[in-house]
Amino acid sequence: MSLDRATLASAVAAQGSVVRVVVAEVLGSAPREVGAAMLVWPGGQEGTIGGGALEYEAAAQAREMLARGEARASRKALLGPDLGQCCGGAVTLLFEAWDADALAALTDTLHARPVDDGASQTPPLAVVRLRAQARRSGARPSPRLVEGWFVEPLSATRAPVWIWGAGHVGRALVETLAPHPGLALTWLDTGADRFPATIPAGVTHRSAPDLAAAAADAPANAHHIVLTYSHAFDLALCDALLGHGFAGLGLIGSATKWARFRARLGQMGHRPDAIARIRCPVGEKRLGKHPQAIAVGVAYGLLMELAQNEAERPAPGDEGNGDDRRALDA
């Protein structure tokens, strides 16, 4: 999890002022993890910290903050005794008001601030070191409480995902993935008439009569899902993307289709190890062939792949000295 600056900026632009409620600490069982957040304004909210009584009361407190012009508050809650929720743990929530001026001051890649107003306004040494390591190495430590200060990274560049095809499965997949804040979706098909009248917010859509040629515009670290209405288009895209480079490539189809494609791609000069990077059939066949079922399976596989990539990133401070490691563990 991280502080999504783009989402925050969009909400501030639309509402003027919002309160961001973030889970700063979890003890025991809780509906959401540390770093989960929601944005609240007088007439609505976006995101979730887990629903139920906790979210209801937090949203009410956030609106009271906006009405009183308060900048920051915190709340500790025992989920069972205080709120009657079945979770047996406790959470600490941090409430922060944001407007255009506050957003403009958000310049560091690692946002750190005291949870309680009564805490020292000077960051502890452990926070100073954590910030220094993030700047030096580009590491993005997970959100955490450090000696009374809540530290969380600003969102990294969203993972580029290119979806090829605007048929039933393509539409279901875009609807499934569009709300995810960590993805930058580009949706392509051969003509404007292939797309629905309404495109989900934040999704870039392109008409490209020559889909294979359009593959050259994709960033090399993009994840691709190929599910056009034409086997010939699918094959041409696999050929183009194998030559262009990609972080991941999933192809819709049966085992029979994939056997034919493997043979054809080999005849086209691609190495077996390169061809093997293509996932086909993509998704989870046990879920069935309904477009929404396919979309859920494909989305699950993509998010698991991204999570695995994130887990394999070096932990912050691994390249530092012993003092830095002790600061991270503080």
Rank of each mutant, 00 (worst) to 15 (best):
E147M: 01
H180C: 06
D193W: 07
G202M: 00
D234N: 06
I252G: 06
I199A: 02
I163R: 08
V282A: 14
L185G: 06
T186C: 06
F261R: 02
G28H: 07
A259T: 10
E70R: 15
R158G: 09
L130N: 07
A172K: 02
R72M: 13
I199F: 07
A259V: 02
L183T: 07
A263C: 07
G191L: 05
R326Y: 07
H223Q: 06
R32I: 04
C87K: 09
K285Y: 09
G248N: 05
E55N: 10
D4W: 11
G138V: 10
T176F: 08
H168V: 09
T48C: 04
V174W: 00
N309P: 01
L188N: 04
G88C: 04
A240D: 04
G191A: 15
E57V: 12
G138T: 08
H244M: 01
F233S: 11
V12T: 05
P316W: 04
P143H: 05
A201I: 01
G322P: 00
T122A: 13
R68G: 09
S254L: 03
R113K: 10
G28M: 05
V23N: 11
V19T: 10
T157D: 14
P143G: 08
N321F: 04
P181A: 06
L211C: 04
R277P: 10
R286T: 13
L211N: 02
Q267Y: 00
L302C: 02
P31W: 00
D99I: 08
L287A: 08
A192M: 06
D193I: 01
G250P: 12
Q85F: 08
I225Y: 14
L251E: 08
K76L: 12
H205L: 00
L66P: 13
R129A: 08
A6D: 11
S142D: 13
A299S: 14
S254V: 01
L185E: 02
W187K: 04
A112T: 11
L125V: 15
A214H: 09
R326W: 12
A90F: 05
E33N: 04
S29A: 14
R63Y: 01
D189A: 12
V169H: 04
A220T: 14
T228W: 00
I225S: 11
L265V: 13
V128H: 08
E70L: 14
R262E: 14
R131M: 13
A119E: 11
E46K: 12
S230T: 00
V151K: 06
D210G: 00
Q121P: 14
S207I: 05
E152D: 11
R264N: 01
Q267G: 01
S207C: 13
R271N: 02
G43H: 13
Q15V: 09
S2Q: 13
E46Q: 14
D189S: 14
A276D: 11
I294F: 03
A216K: 02
G84Q: 04
L287M: 09
N321G: 15
G118V: 09
D108F: 03
I163T: 10
L249R: 01
S120Y: 03
A58T: 05
A232Q: 13
P42D: 10
D324E: 15
I199G: 08
A220V: 14
H270C: 05
A9H: 05
P123G: 06
E175C: 05
A102S: 13
A14Y: 00
R171C: 13
A159F: 05
E284A: 15
D234A: 03
A255D: 15
L235V: 01
Y300M: 12
Y56C: 09
A90W: 10
E25C: 04
S137K: 03
T198M: 06
L188Q: 06
A119T: 09
